[in-house]
Nucleic acid binder design. Structure first.
Lengths: 224, 224
DNA sequence: AAAGCTATAATTGTATACAATAATACAATG
DNA sequence: CATTGTATTATTGTATACAATTATAGCTTT
């Protein structure tokens, strides 16, 4: 079976791969806040030329992950706990809207996909496989984004969700959160299946708020 | 006086200029939907090399303005009226949140800036200078975005606002809309000055909804 | 004449070379 | 000793060269 749900490995061009690599490094906190990213050093480290590096850096700049000072260089922009909290607020606003649009516009393919993802969530929740669950959580919400069929909406929500997912990954690794999160996704799925827009908005907003609170508590207990 | 409010001409690197040029061309409808953007052709037209072109195209790809097919080329992605309408919905969701954050976090500099912008709006409304008003409208809302002091929030709202502003610019060019728009901005400004968060959210959402309706009507009357 | 193969051209992807700007080190001057 | 100016080096910005992939045209075959 080659169309495994996790098999998302179609590497694009080099610059795209580099973009994703550097993005994940930044979100992971591998670089210091304000650290300069030297093009030649990166090129040598990754054993490629500067061209794809530069293209990737240009993209990171647009995502606000680095700051570029002309003729000087690009510098990584760090995250504050408030930045992450703000992103949760954006998600609450946007996903409530997204799920209503999604219910209006989704087709059977989307519906089957989100059901499959949920089934896997049940499985990996039992196994407490946090990394798989993080990936599945991203997939679950991305199906909703894609069902809106609005390219900008999709892209923006994907980015925001990916950011918060990566930056708060350690906050979520608790058994009881896994269980409540699973049941929350079940409720969301049921509302989608019932095509209950108002209900879906309510439960997805509440779900994100709970996650937000969890992350808040974590950052309060683990100040940097 | 060199710090003119419109004097925003600090051209960045070539690739940044090219990015902005191509973005505006696409938003303006200068290219056909699906048209291929040939790197060499663009380089020759703009009398530069392919390198800055490619860097700009990579950025456009991230903004969903073009689609890149590996080893084949990049193709412009057109807009539908629904896409634009969806962007208005996103603005309504996000700006309501943004203005509340902005009121909490804004300083005197932001406040003075938005007052100055409003004063100019009054002036150019009398003169019915649509292009200046479009620029001032962008500035007015961008002050709010900047006052949130949340980098992602700022960037996302700037992009969305710029998109809708550019793609619906012809829909707004009517004398009575200029007058009502001005008074709506006055109300928003007053709520900001009064630090009335709930009130501000209400009036800014209503303001965007009115603009949205105006654009809807226009696209209904002028189907492509 | 239609379908398929092959050679050629065109285009994208990557690497390197050159140009312009900024950072550094060090000497000269007060 | 501090400061300023200058030469050198390092780094970014842009252009060009080369490699890999895709599109095109013409020929062959049936």
């Amino acid at each position: 079976m080659s169309d495994n749900i996790f098999e998302n490995v179609k590497h694009g061009s080099l610059s795209t791969q580099i973009f994703e690599l550097l993005r994940d490094r930044i979100l992971n906190g591998d670089y210091e806040d304000g650290q300069k990213l030297n093009e030649l050093a990166l090129a040598k480290e990754l054993k490629i030329s500067r061209t794809p590096i530069r293209e990737a850096l240009k993209q990171l700049e647009l995502q606000e992950l680095v700051e570029s000072i002309p003729n000087k260089g690009v510098y990584v922009k760090g995250f504050s706990a408030r930045d992450i909290d703000d992103m949760f607020e954006m998600r609450i606003s946007l996903e409530g809207l997204a799920i209503e649009l999604a219910i209006d516009r989704m087709d059977d393919e989307h519906l089957n996909k989100i059901k499959d993802v949920y089934d896997l969530m049940e499985f990996y929740s039992m196994k407490l496989d946090y990394e798989k669950l993080r990936e599945l959580n991203i997939m679950f919400h991305e199906v909703i984004y894609e069902a809106t069929q609005s390219p900008y909406f999709m892209q923006i929500l994907k980015d925001i969700h990916y950011y918060v997912s990566m930056t708060s990954r350690h906050a979520i690794r608790q058994k009881d959160r896994v269980e409540t999160s699973l049941s929350e996704h079940k409720v969301i799925l049921d509302k989608i299946i019932a095509a209950d827009k108002e209900g879906a908005r309510e439960v997805i907003e509440s779900h994100i708020r709970k996650t937000q609170q969890f992350v808040r508590d974590y950052f309060l207990a683990h100040p940097k």
